[in-house]
Nucleic acid binder design. Structure first.
Length: 543
DNA sequence: TAATGCGGGAGGA
DNA sequence: TCCTCCCGCATTA
């Protein structure tokens, strides 16, 4: 294929530097687009004002769901869906997908985020809201400088129980960081089943680190069970208990031992076993087979009736080593969950002002990482993205980790910002370009035209038109620099957490209190660059 | 045991 | 009135 047009999308999965997805789209001479390397469906906010429902793929990289004009609350949703999106585990932002009703994950309304059911008094639409993430109240740094980010239990009782537990790393209390990414309220996901399609719509941008994914949580538990039931483990356990007794008075310098006294059953054992006696690769299989990660979004179309050859091969995630940080980064990352829809904003299309529910605001700097009002949130970031257990477990925790090519920590890394060690904030600049954020406070979501040639990293959107070609990008790997990154002058359609934090009225006392209770020290400066150096992301552990 | 879904209810705009 | 979240309960894995 002759690549006559190319765009690269770099998407911060969390909007705060956790992960990076590089997407390459090429257009051949026939005008057909293809996503090189089998990327998951890129998402963008398309020009919903277009008369036609379909957009030209050559100039708008969207999920199929975003290409159609619909809202989850519409009395009548698009019919006769011929193209479906691949399941997205980590949706973030105001995005929409249309899944096939045969998608097991869609059927189960799964999400990487900890989403709980929320009653919207509408039987047709299932609404779920994000629970946030469980962190260490002290914000202790793990071995690699990252932060603990556990998945909140969905069940209220289980969650209360969970919060009574102690940090497996420092034995401090665990605290729940609520999600406030949707106008001060938790990010909400809506599911609606219509015929052969399952419509998904997300509202809000998560303003907290990713928790441990459901699949990871389940895998860990299953691994623990297997480990505990193993005779070999019994011997190790006895040995560890002996060690624990020996070092019990060391004041927490042996966290993995110390927390024996504060962790219950499975989690206690999981740490011990995995940190000291690495478990052999466990197969995470919570998400239905490889379905979420197959190359379902084959260009130009993926229909319900036909299956692209790209979908048939075994899950590309299988046997792909996972970096300890859990980053989705660089080209190979699309093999992972690939659920980081790129949200585009067409700078040439001013936001309509007719929608009274929208609030436009000028934000200085990154939408996510710059506000002094959000020290708490800022303290999370890429370094934080490690799923806590993985960090605790150390490099040997998942067996193949030693395969990762270590990249020396380098504070001068193009993505490293020592001033904001917790979130990537784009190219260093004394006066970060302002971003206009449109807040949609009603159930109506505004979508705007997209430009394919932008990069969204963190919550900034950058222009990467000057990227020369895909091959160079791929060769450069995850740390390929994007020297031409720049922030567009106009708005992104998403409402960032920062936006609401700056503009919205003070949150409820309860929320404020809970927020104030979280204090996190800075991260070690080199952790981020070290983490992002890993080109692979192991998501569900299907390796 | 926890996840999930449903429904009642309270509170705010 | 509408929309939100909280809570309890039943079902399921």
């Amino acid at each position: 294929m002759l690549v006559s047009e190319m765009c690269v999308t770099v998407r911060d999965a969390l909007g705060n530097g956790e992960a990076l997805l590089v997407e390459v789209k090429a257009t051949d001479q026939l005008g057909q687009t293809a996503q090189i390397c089998g990327l998951p469906p890129p998402i963008s906010h398309c020009n919903m004002s277009k008369a036609s429902d379909q957009f030209d793929d050559s100039d708008c990289v969207c999920s199929f769901g975003m290409k159609l004009t619909w809202d989850i609350n519409d009395p009548k949703l698009p019919q006769d869906i011929k193209q479906y999106d691949a399941f997205q585990e980590w949706t973030d932002g105001y995005v929409r997908f249309i899944y096939t009703a045969e998608d097991k994950n869609a059927q189960r309304h799964l999400s990487g985020w900890a989403m709980r059911n929320t009653n919207n008094h509408n039987c047709q639409i299932l609404k779920k809201s994000c629970l946030g993430v469980v962190v260490c109240s002290r914000g202790c740094a793990l071995v690699d400088g990252s932060k603990l980010t556990l998945r909140p239990a969905i069940c209220d009782k289980a969650r209360q129980k969970q919060q009574k537990k102690l940090c497996p790393n420092c034995s401090s209390a665990l605290e729940l960081v609520p999600c406030r990414g949707h106008s001060g309220y938790p990010v909400t996901n809506f599911w609606r089943s219509e015929g052969k399609a399952i419509f998904f719509q997300a509202k809000g941008v998560h303003d907290h680190p990713r928790p441990e994914s459901k699949s990871e949580t389940e895998a860990r538990r299953s691994a623990v069970k297997r480990r505990v039931s193993s005779p070999h483990f019994s011997q190790k356990k006895r040995l560890m208990e002996s060690e624990a007794g020996r070092y019990h008075d060391t004041g927490g310098h042996f966290p993995n031992i110390h927390h024996l006294s504060c962790m219950d059953g499975s989690e206690r054992f999981s740490i011990i076993a995995e940190s000291n006696f690495p478990i052999q690769a466990q197969h995470y299989a919570s998400f239905q087979n490889a379905e979420p990660y197959k190359f379902a979004y084959d260009a130009p179309s993926h229909t319900a009736d036909t299956t692209s050859p790209l979908q048939k091969p075994s899950n590309h995630r299988l046997y792909v080593p996972r970096p300890p940080c859990g980053y989705e980064f660089a080209v190979p990352s699309y093999l992972g969950s690939g659920s980081y829809p790129a949200i585009y904003k067409d700078s040439s299309s001013p936001q309509p002002e007719s929608d009274s529910g929208k609030v436009c605001a000028q934000l200085n700097g990154s939408q996510h990482g710059m506000s002094p009002l959000n020290v708490h949130d800022r303290s999370y970031d890429a370094a934080n993205k490690h799923h806590g257990w993985k960090q605790i477990l150390g490099k040997g925790g998942y067996g193949e980790r030693s395969e990762y090519s270590p990249v020396p920590a380098n504070s001068s890394h193009p993505y490293h910002n020592s001033e904001y060690p917790c979130r990537y904030t784009g190219p260093a600049s004394a006066t970060p370009p302002a971003l206009q954020t449109i807040i949609t406070t009603t159930t109506k979501v505004s979508y705007q035209p997209c430009k394919p040639s932008v990069v969204k990293y963190g919550d900034n959107i950058y222009d990467v038109k000057n990227l020369q070609n895909c091959s160079s990008l791929l060769e450069n790997g995850p740390v390929a620099s994007y020297p031409e990154l720049k922030v567009p002058e106009d708005a992104g359609v998403i409402k960032s957490a920062l936006a609401y934090q700056q503009e919205a009225p003070p949150p409820k006392t309860e929320r404020a209190e809970s927020l104030d209770s979280y204090r996190y020290p800075g991260y070690c400066s080199n952790s981020y660059s070290e983490r992002i150096a890993h080109p692979f992301r192991y998501e569900n552990g299907e390796y």
